[in-house]
Design a protein around this nucleic acid. Structure first.
Length: 261
DNA sequence: ATTGTGGCCTGCCCGC
DNA sequence: TGCGGGCAGGCCACAA
């Protein structure tokens, strides 16, 4: 699913639209417009506007328009970006690789006939006007150890829940979180605020290493642990059967022996 | 403020 | 061969 690595690719792809002027807006699914936005308000914001820049914070893609409010694009679990006929991510874990016309939820048409569109079968993504960027924590890609310490400080809930909290750290999703914790040899159920200095450093290293390595491999679904998420497979490190439970309603895998001190 | 839970959405996979 | 149930998770509303 689109986590920070996939949305970063979407952002790189979307940057080719910088400087273009929007001549039409397609909102075939008004349910896809969030936080009070509707077809007419989105049209009013975007029509005639020029794309001034494309940014990304966590999983939120921001399209800055010259002299207008920013458009915020979210991709949920199965959303894909299509720019000038190029798909940002060909294969999406849990998503379909097909491009059905019925799955087009939003599109910007530019002068000259080019297009930026969101395809989302399950409609879990969305578009909003001027999203509140302060609701997101520091971006996981550039997260410092000090920022990680702040994000975990005082947390009495499970470590995994804190890492998934976009207001604390922006960008980590379910797969990246499991992979990161497995690499750091930390239990997902640890109290977030209970990490010792060495553990904090290990976790920070794991976040950084995981993001860069999986980015090179091709996405958030290419982790070592993800490959082992199958019946009969054991921990890729020690071979022990993986533990599995629902944490916060999310499927969670870990290796108990590896995470034990 | 923090933490936990339920629900939304629907394509896909599995077992019958 | 068709059918139905369960699963997947990012995000938000809501409750305690």
């Amino acid at each position: 699913m689109p986590e920070i690595l996939e949305v970063e690719r979407y952002a790189r792809l979307a940057r080719r639209t910088v400087g273009r002027t929007i001549v039409d807006v397609a909102t075939p699914d008004s349910w896809f417009l969030k936080r009070g936005a509707d077809p007419s308000s989105v049209r009013a914001v975007a029509l005639g506007a020029t794309v001034a820049g494309v940014r990304r914070i966590g999983k939120l893609l921001l399209v800055d328009l010259a002299g207008r409010p920013t458009l915020g694009l979210r991709f949920g679990m199965t959303g894909r970006l299509l720019v000038d006929g190029v798909i940002g991510i060909e294969e999406l874990e849990y998503g379909s690789s097909r491009v059905e016309p019925a799955w087009f939820r939003f599109a910007l048409d530019f002068a000259g006939g080019t297009t930026l569109a969101i395809i989302d079968p399950r409609r879990l993504g969305g578009v909003e006007i001027a999203p509140d960027e302060r609701r997101l924590g520091p971006d996981a890609f550039t997260l410092t150890e000090s920022q990680l310490r702040d994000a975990l400080r005082g947390g009495r809930g499970p470590l995994k829940a804190r890492l998934l909290d976009q207001a604390r750290i922006a960008g980590l999703g379910n797969l990246l979180t499991d992979e990161t914790l497995w690499r750091a040899r930390l239990l997902p159920t640890r109290r977030a605020g209970s990490l010792a200095g060495g553990e904090l450093r290990r976790l920070h290293d794991a976040i950084t290493d995981t993001l860069h390595e999986l980015d090179r491999r091709g996405g958030s679904h290419t982790g070592d642990l993800q490959i082992a998420r199958a019946p009969g497979r054991g921990c890729p490190r020690c071979g022990h059967p993986l533990s599995h439970t629902q944490a916060g309603g999310r499927s969670t895998y870990w290796c108990t022996p590896c995470a034990s001190p």
